[in-house]
Design a protein around this nucleic acid. Sequence first.
DNA 1: CTGAAAGCGCTTACAG
DNA 2: CTGAAAGCGCTTACAG
Lengths: 345, 345
Amino acid sequence: MGTLSDVAKEAGVSISTASRAFASPGLVNAQTRDRVQQAAARVGYTPPRVARSLQAGWTSKFGLIVPDIANPFFPPVIKTIQARARQRGHAVVLADSDEHPADEIELAAMMAKEVDGLLMVSPRGPKDQLEEIRRIVPTVFVNRHVPQAPAVLIDTAEGMQHAVQLLHALGHRHIAYLAGPRTSWANTQRREAVEGECGRLGVEFAQFGPFEPNLQSGIGAADMVAGSTATGVIAYDDMIALGVLTRLAERGLQPGRDISVIGVDDSPMAALAHPALTTVRVPGAQAGTAAVDLLCDVVARSASTQVIRLDTTLVVRGSTGPAPAHVSPTTGDRGQERRVKPVSR
Amino acid sequence: MGTLSDVAKEAGVSISTASRAFASPGLVNAQTRDRVQQAAARVGYTPPRVARSLQAGWTSKFGLIVPDIANPFFPPVIKTIQARARQRGHAVVLADSDEHPADEIELAAMMAKEVDGLLMVSPRGPKDQLEEIRRIVPTVFVNRHVPQAPAVLIDTAEGMQHAVQLLHALGHRHIAYLAGPRTSWANTQRREAVEGECGRLGVEFAQFGPFEPNLQSGIGAADMVAGSTATGVIAYDDMIALGVLTRLAERGLQPGRDISVIGVDDSPMAALAHPALTTVRVPGAQAGTAAVDLLCDVVARSASTQVIRLDTTLVVRGSTGPAPAHVSPTTGDRGQERRVKPVSR
DNA sequence: CTGAAAGCGCTTACAG
DNA sequence: CTGAAAGCGCTTACAG
């Protein structure tokens, strides 16, 4: 816990030299450098970043804001961001906005002065406030398009179109989209893609929601879907879709046979659900790495407006199957009504 | 983005006074204080913590290390820790050790000099290294007993005993424990509680593992259990238990009838699984809040050795039921063998 | 109540 | 290659 001047004294050099031995080793005689380093070891010294930051003007920290770490989509993203940032010499200060746009902006503003750069993943806040943040601190957005701003965008549109095409090919003629958060860029993109593709294929489109992206929402969503004439469901994300799966089973409806369900993300639970969930796989980890790299560029050159685009893939599993022939489009009678058990929670 | 001297100039006071207006408003004339604050608003100034830290000797940051944020047990803990820390004026720097004891210690050592205090949740590292960390920075451990160290300990022993008692009451006479990480304090506690209670009740005890606490591990664990004569299974945590549930179903075994399964944590998925998982509920959020409060005390008085203990509750759901009468203790034949479907992944 | 001065621990032109 | 000096932005005894 010694200080630089202790080291200098111990090594018999000036503070300046001791400092250089750490900050710019190249400028120091190799022997002197060794002497300093040994002295440092003896004194138990490592350069503290706080004092360093003050002088150098940077903090070697990145801020990271996500809407909800309890949503399984985010942990892998956070993990790769942390790992990559660490490789590049930065610690990560994480904050969770709990899906509240106002908190999100407040957290961002608080962090702004304490970090070298900010990563905002799936931000829900309004455009102009995000632009404001970007003016105070170098920022990279993930899953959100802000004009002129550097971003990593995961293009789910194509994946969603494939999802609709799959259902169409399986004979489904009425598809419901279970919407995610109202201010989510991804939600808009996904809804438009589903709706557009339905229109193109002449499939009836309906929307339910918005829903918070969690299992609980899926419960309610399932009841809405079961009460409609839709035979195919595409949810904003896996959490909602998984909730739907659970609830349908409780009501005696078999996903993949009575109703086909598709999620988005391909989170670990998707493969393990029963039946396994068909889903649009989103490369979250890849996005995390790309975002850190981009942020490093932005911080370094302080003027990048680059946008990186990543693609998705449809992963087909057991929750999708041929449309049941017997659903009456007018009454919504699934010919199974007697099998539907009333369930309360 | 102005600086304190800008504010001072703008307000027509000395830097000292401007500083006091923020650091100790009580020492400054009310009018002067207002003048300074208005000047600050005009210049767009807010006290930057870096410079402040250097002088004051604190950072207003807490470090937080967890083994795996992708395990659903941790996000709620992290969330409450962040919320509470924020209330108490501290940001949280989060790191994920990926279940690697070595990384955990390294991360802790790195953070030590950059934060006012450290929270280590469910640490896996060796005792002496944790003690070493504690010497460099005020630390509170959660879910780990380190001699003399302040900690929040969740006492699962009683919950585990209840779990064994439940199975025993349901007629189970052979119970398997699916072990978690080898160096996990909670795992030791849980295993001993299960084993002890089995002994007391005259129930045969077996152990499998150790397993990483995730769904994937549960898959393998399920096959081991299915191949044994155990009719009741208690897993280290919900993730493993949930993986077991999934895999048993795939193999045509019905949890709650053919085999009873109990997890630990009561994570959100537990209630939504099919059948819903009987589990020992662990008050993670409560532990998070308590840990922050304790850490604040430790940092303030710099010498607390207090240990806070929290209790667990057994939550009974559909994954547990009467022991099947027809399992042969010698051959392990469940009389259902024809129903077991071979499944590959 | 307010100001001048020293100092927190380091970095970095500027001389040598 | 190395040292003395100034300074990063603030805080806080010390005088007044």
